[in-house]
Every structure is written in C-alpha cells, then in structure tokens.
Design a protein around this nucleic acid. Structure first.
Ligand SMILES: NC(=O)c1ccc[n+]([C@@H]2O[C@H](COP(=O)([O-])OP(=O)(O)OC[C@H]3O[C@@H](n4cnc5c(N)ncnc54)[C@H](O)[C@@H]3O)[C@@H](O)[C@H]2O)c1
Ligand SMILES: NC(=O)c1ccc[n+]([C@@H]2O[C@H](COP(=O)([O-])OP(=O)(O)OC[C@H]3O[C@@H](n4cnc5c(N)ncnc54)[C@H](O)[C@@H]3O)[C@@H](O)[C@H]2O)c1
Lengths: 219, 219
DNA sequence: CCGAGCTTGTTCACAAGTTCACAAAGTTGC
DNA sequence: GCAACTTTGTGAACTTGTGAACAAGCTCGG
C-alpha cells in the first residue's frame, strides 16, 4: 500500500482543530455549505493563512476560487480528531468538580461520554451521580477493562493526584486530563493535559497588575 | 528614580510562574529554605535551564553555588504575579459550573475571591450560592463598581458568551476567563483566556487515535 | 474557449521559545 | 588562602510557530 504521507502535525495545529470543528458546526447549523479560509479564520479568531496552513497538513480539502466545503471539511476534521467513534472516560474524584463534570452533558455531542466515576471515600461509593453510581477507586482496573476506557480524568485533591495517575497508568490508561493543581510524573508514552483554573486567573492577574503599573508610569 | 529595567516577559514564562509558585509553596511547607534550579525543575516538570532563564527575567534572586532562597523567591514571584493583594472576581452564569466554581474555596489561597455571581434567569436571582446571593445580570455595572471587580468569569451557555463579554467590557472589565466554548471578540487591550475542557479531551483523543494507527502500522 | 476575479496551498523570512554549554561567582574543606 | 566543587546567569544555536506574499488552480460570464 502506498503510504499516504503521514506528516508530523504541529501541536499548535492540533489544538486549533477542535476550534475549527466548532466553527464549522456553527456554519453548518446556519445552512452554509461553503466557507473560505478568511471566513473560518474570522470565526475562529485567527488569520486566514494559519487556517490554510493548518488544514493543508491533512490534505487538500479546499477548492481554489471557492473555499472549503463545510460538511466535507467537517467530516475530515472529525476523522483526524478521532471523533468518528465514541471515547469512554472515567472520572476519579467524585467531589464538587468531578460530579459537575459527570453530570454535564455537553461532551457527548463531541464524542466523549463519562461512563464511570470513582472515589476512595466509602461514604460516597454507591451514591448516584446522574445515571452513574460511584464505584470504589480500587475497582479501577475492572472498570477500565469492562468499559474499554482509554481516557482518565483526575478531579481528586492535589495530594492524591499522583497516586491516581500511577494507578491509571498501571491499568493501561495513556491519556489523562488532570484538574488537580499538581505536576504529574508519568512514563514516556502517557499524555497528560492539565486544566488549572487558578493558573489562568494568575496569568490574567499578572497582566492586570502590569497594566496598572504601566498606566501609573505614563502619568 | 533609575528605571528598574522592565524587560518584556515571554508569555510562556508567565504561564510557568504560577507553577513555580506552587512548587515553592510545597518546598516551604516541607521546611526547605533553599532549592536549586534543578530541584525546582524536577518538581515543576521542566528542565533546569528553563527555570533559571525564566527567573532571570525578574532579577538575580539566586546565589551561585547554593541555589535560590525559597521564601525570598516565593515573595518575588508573588509580587510579580500581583499576588500581594486580593483580586475580586465576578462569575456570570449561575449554572452547573458557575455555582461549582463559586463554592470552590481553593482560589482564595491564591489571592482570588469570587465576590459576586449573576444570571439572567429570574428564577435563580435571589437564590444563595454559598455565602453569595445570585444577582441579576443587568446589575453588572453596579456590582463591578461597588466591589471594585477587575476579573470576569463567563460560565453561561456558548450562545450568551459574546453578549456577556460585551457587557463586561462595557463596564470596564479587561480580564476575562471564559469557560463557554465560543471564540470571543473583544477590543484591543482586553485579555481573554479560554478554558475549554472539550478541546483538551479532543487533543487527547487525537493522540490516542494516532497511537492506535501507528501501532497498527508496526504490525 | 478565454480572461477576470477569487481562493487555495506553499514558500520564505521572521518571531518566539527551548536547550546547550560555559564563564562567573559563590561555598566548603583543608 | 586556595583548590575542588557547585550552581547561577546568559549568549548562542536550534526548534517551533506565525504571517506576508504569491503562483497555481478553480469558477463564471460572455
Ligand atoms: N471545584 C472547583 O470548582 C474546582 C475548580 C478548579 C480546580 N479544582 C480542582 O479540582 C480538584 C477537585 O476539586 P473539588 O472541589 O471537586 O474537591 P473535593 O474535595 O470536593 O473532591 C475531591 C474528591 O476526591 C476524592 N479523593 C481524594 N483522594 C482520592 C483518591 N486517592 N482516589 C479517589 N478519589 C479521591 C475525595 O474523596 C473527594 O470526593 C481539586 O484538586 C481542585 O483544586 C476544583
Ligand atoms: N458543567 C460543566 O462541567 C462544564 C464543563 C466544561 C465547560 N462547560 C461550559 O460552561 C458553560 C456553563 O455550563 P453549565 O453546565 O454551568 O451550564 P448551565 O446551563 O447549567 O448554566 C448556564 C447558566 O448561564 C445562564 N445564562 C444564560 N445566558 C445568560 C446571560 N446572557 N447572562 C447571564 N447568565 C446567563 C443560564 O441562566 C444558566 O444559569 C457552558 O458553556 C458549558 O459548555 C461546563
């Protein structure tokens, strides 16, 4: 089989694909069947050249003089992102945030479903969170095997996060979304993405602080 | 006054400062008073050169042959990040996520406090979320002025996010943390940071998908 | 069929960020 | 006081990402 040039896709491009997907969904909902790179760029908040370059990594899906075919491009992006099938996820840490995420239905449209939620707290095990029943953390291996889970979501306290990550890796999970404010140490081949709201706020505060300083300087 | 060289700080460096802060807090809690760039790097999950370069943008806080003085460095980072005073924040959108964030106490230690939560839904206005009472979105200008708010957090549905952002800008907010899956259009000078959990999951899925493909190829 | 008008795909130069490597500057033991 | 050792701070090479520019390619009207 002739190898279909599998180029290396820049991380920055990968991070933008879901945004393009979202914009294309909006266009599709609005009945649009064609869109130019500039229109897409406008919606995505980037510039046209970037859109064209990003999309060109995956093939030539546009038509010169016309633009991109919305449903077709959407299909291709979905395929690239692995959105053609469903991704079962497990949440570990059935606290404030874990239960909020579990109850949130918004990920289902994008191909993710929370199929299990676990905790160490015996008093929580057995309780219901939406349609799910909280199971004991010790059952992780069973749960992951039973439900064919490949993505783990950590919403425990920071202190427990590394332990939970170790257990996840142990049972074969190689993609982890971590909400705990902790730097996780995982073996090569395991991918961790951190979502840290406090850091985002601190970045805003840094700029806000500098803004105040610069303004004081001008005066 | 001799201008204390205010260099341009790379964005990537700014994003790491909160991580260093967190690591230093851990070291301090453990009673450590000195730490080398390598030790800090280990905790932060980066390499030593990066730590040294990042810190050097702010001044020379280390001692050659010894390392950095933990309390001193912590103080300097706090100052740079504007953590020496409190940042009052307003949450707009008192749904699942908005209330979870409002109730979460974990930001207070880092200098952020949610001082108001608002919604358009009349049935929610007046209800309590922890110690706060949900106020009507129309009062945003008053609330921001009264409580001297500089950071706005958007947790409405995606459709309402742009409207809310416009209102925030209108009343003088220039730092916005957006949880809605929408690209916000704001004037120059206003800083928006997006937290999009679905995108993070999609990035994990992309790599997971590729991993499966590569493995199939090897066989 | 042809030319005018668009829009893509790609190249290239530049900007941003990372890592290396090492002199400078400190400490410690003798 | 000096030699051996440690660790910082930084210039320089390298990698990654961005944006401008433009040739190639498509459509459409006549
Ligand atoms: N709640 C928020 O709005 C919010 C926002 C941003 C970040 N976070 C972070 O998310 C994490 C969870 O926050 P939360 O408010 O849900 O906290 P929480 O205390 O309500 O929940 C933590 C849960 O984790 C469980 N847990 C602890 N150790 C465990 C282990 N080893 N295995 C399995 N479960 C374990 C606890 O029993 C508890 O149910 C924290 O790290 C927090 O910093 C929360
Ligand atoms: N819940 C989660 O776990 C989660 C996770 C990731 C992202 N999100 C995103 O966060 C946002 C909120 O999610 P949610 O689950 O809390 O939704 P939700 O429907 O529970 O809450 C949305 C709230 O916003 C209010 N609202 C709508 N328009 C408004 C306006 N113009 N002004 C003020 N308030 C307005 C609604 O009345 C409602 O109370 C969504 O965009 C969602 O995609 C949620």
């Amino acid at each position: 089989m002739s190898s279909p040039r599998r180029r290396v896709i820049p991380e920055a491009t990968i991070a933008r694909l879901p945004i393009y997907q979202r914009c294309l969904l909006e266009l599709e909902a609005g009945g649009r069947t064609k869109a130019s790179s500039e229109q897409l760029a406008e919606l995505a908040g980037v510039n046209g050249a970037k859109v064209r370059k990003d999309l060109s990594y995956f093939g030539t899906y546009g038509t010169r003089g016309v633009g991109y075919d919305v449903p077709h491009l959407l299909h291709e992006i979905r395929r690239e992102l692995g959105m053609t099938h469903d991704w079962p996820c497990v949440i570990v840490g059935a606290g404030n945030l874990g239960t909020a995420l579990a109850k949130f239905g918004g990920f289902t449209d994008r191909g993710f479903s929370v199929v299990a939620i676990m905790d160490v707290d015996e008093s929580k095990v057995g309780q219901k969170v939406g349609a799910l029943t909280i199971r004991h953390e010790d059952d992780l291996a069973d749960v992951v095997a039973e439900l064919d889970i490949s993505i783990g979501i950590i919403t425990t306290t920071a202190g427990a996060a590394q332990d939970v990550a170790d257990q996840m890796v142990e049972v074969g999970i190689r993609s982890i979304l971590n909400f705990a404010p902790a730097t996780l140490d995982v073996p090569f081949g395991v991918l961790v993405r951190d979502v840290d709201v406090a850091i985002e706020l601190q970045i805003l505060a840094f700029h806000e602080e500098r803004r105040v300083l610069s303004e004081a300087e001008i005066v």
